[in-house]
């Protein structure tokens, strides 16, 4: 993509940190200086393991918690957790488990029309019409309006949760693991729905996932998080074809493959992420990194641009030979 058609940033995260715990005692650094840009009309995937801070970032963006430091800009204007209702409406969230995020005692009609009334999205007399529009947007029949959440399957319930998020006509959707709780045969329908919402409504989507295989089919760009920082950001194709950060390489090599392969070879990555309370000095990935050098134990690498649209937080970006993935091919 050339610089001329640089897409506009709709959401910018600058140097955001989030600490839990106060005073002299150990603080947990859930986010430790995150920079991220969501472009208009794109699907950006945020991938990372548990404890990487991806859900914390989602909460900050949706305004359900506030950052310790740093800025969040929406269309260039700073927004905080205590935001005006118009700003609040622009960014909506879809959660992993639709059953626990829908009121079991409200029919779909009452849950959705409540949102429409409270936010005065449409005049009262148009509510019925608007409800049908929402249902058709998420691929459900109007008859679903009079049912309760428990009467739906997991996939249908996720569609209802999405319809509720769309009710206030947001232009940014933050989806936190929206397909992780669904069966594989249903996952694809929800992924398709996100794709069609993006193309029909021009939504910008931040799609949080732990499964690289899922986002590979959906995302335009992928940001990989590790222990509260972005390790690598790239276009989806680039990230899979030439991952630069050793963690990204290991993450790709760890994805279970359909093709049966040899289990004799060592795993792509040893150990588990260290505690975000006691972060290692230097690069936070160094205790698990196969290439760690003395520099990596002392200084933390910043997220640096290595190519157009491709940034990596590694001292040796561009110099590593992607040995873990190459090696596994030789073994197999």
């Amino acid at each position: 993509m050339s610089a001329a058609e640089q897409p506009a940033a709709v959401l910018e995260v600058r140097e955001v940190t989030k600490r839990y715990g106060h005073g002299r005692r150990d603080t947990l650094r859930a986010l430790d200086g995150v920079d991220l840009t969501l472009h208009r009309g794109e699907i950006l995937a945020l991938v990372g393991e548990s404890g990487s801070g991806k859900s914390t970032l989602a909460k900050i963006l949706a305004g359900s918690t506030s950052q310790t430091s740093g800025q969040v800009l929406c269309d260039g204007v700073e927004i905080t957790a205590r935001r005006h209702s118009t700003a609040r409406r622009r960014i909506q969230m879809v959660f992993q488990d639709p059953y626990s995020s829908l009121n079991p005692r409200m029919t779909v009609r009452s849950a959705l029309s409540e949102v429409l009334r409270v936010h005065r999205v449409v005049p009262r007399e148009q509510i019925a019409e608007e409800l049908s529009r929402l249902m058709s947007l998420v691929g459900l029949d109007d008859s679903a309006l009079d049912a309760y959440p428990s009467q739906f399957s997991g996939g249908q319930r996720q569609r209802i949760a999405i319809a509720r998020a769309l009710a206030v006509r947001p232009d940014i959707l933050i989806a936190d693991e929206p397909v992780s709780a669904l069966d594989v045969s249903v996952q694809a329908t929800i992924l398709d729905l996100f794709e069609s919402l993006r193309s029909e409504l021009g939504l910008s989507v931040l799609f949080i996932a732990h499964n690289l295989a899922v986002v590979q089919h959906l995302a335009d760009r992928i940001a990989v998080m590790y222990l509260g920082r972005i390790a690598e950001v790239a276009q989806t194709d680039t990230l899979f074809a030439s991952p630069e950060h050793p963690y990204t390489q290991a993450l790709i090599a760890s994805v279970p493959r359909m093709r049966p392969r040899d289990l004799e070879q060592p795993p792509a990555l040893d150990g588990e992420p260290p505690s975000p309370i006691h972060l290692p000095t230097g690069c936070r990935f160094n205790p698990r990194c196969a290439y760690a050098q003395p520099t990596c134990l002392i200084d933390e690498p910043a997220l640096e641009r290595v190519a157009e649209g491709h940034s990596v937080a590694c001292w040796f970006a561009g110099q590593l030979q992607q040995a873990p993935t190459k090696q596994s091919e030789e073994f197999a």
Binding site: L212, L251, S254, P256, L263
Partner: peptide
């Protein structure tokens, strides 16, 4: 489990 840990445990 996380993917990198899942990989270790399966092996």
């Amino acid at each position: 489990l996380d993917v990198t840990v899942q990989d270790q445990v399966l092996r």
